[in-house]
Design a protein around this nucleic acid. Structure first.
Length: 152
DNA sequence: CTTTTATAACAGC
DNA sequence: GCTGTTATAAAAG
């Protein structure tokens, strides 16, 4: 299946869902100006992302995403995909659950191609925020979005 | 507070 | 295989 892109509009700008109809290959957050040179084709995840960015509690865990990894990296990403909306964990807790080291969790999450669908922003460091591939500003923004939705 | 050290897995060679 | 890197964490100074 030839890849295509489904744009979504947010108050932060335009983002893109790259997909092959069967699976989501990549999520491009607004402001990362990585404009994919691909045909435009609808995908439901784009609509859900628009709702999510407006503050609605959307559950993305049923979407099928491509995980371009194997071994522990794949296991970490699959585990993190199941973290529910508004919940947070630490690198250490994920590591313990999977029988590995916190640094490996960071390494795995830094390879995530599909932010929000795989909610890697819900994994924070024990003391502080932890890193984020697209800038900590986005991580703060996403966490704040989910907190305010749940009214905390 | 800052620096060091232990630690697991990967990429690139 | 070895080396440098990685979104960590705990302990030492």
């Amino acid at each position: 299946m030839t890849p295509a892109v489904a744009p979504f509009e947010t108050r932060f700008g335009t983002g893109y869902v790259v997909h092959d109809r069967r699976r989501v290959l990549k999520v491009i957050l607004p402001g990362t100006d990585d404009r994919p040179e691909l045909p435009v084709r609808y995908h439901p995840a784009a609509e859900d992302l628009e709702r999510y960015m407006k503050g609605e509690p959307v559950d993305f865990s049923e979407y099928s995403v491509r995980i371009p990894a194997s071994g522990i990296v794949e296991r970490v990403l699959r585990y993190v995909k199941q973290i529910p909306y508004g919940d947070t964990t630490t690198y250490g807790e994920v590591a313990e659950a999977l029988g590995t080291h916190p640094r490996i969790v960071g390494l795995a999450l830094s390879r995530n191609e599909t932010p929000v669908l795989i909610p890697c922003h819900r994994v924070v460091s024990k003391e502080g925020l932890g890193g984020f591939r697209w800038g900590k500003e986005w991580k703060r923004r996403l966490l704040k979005l989910e907190r305010s939705t749940l009214g905390r």
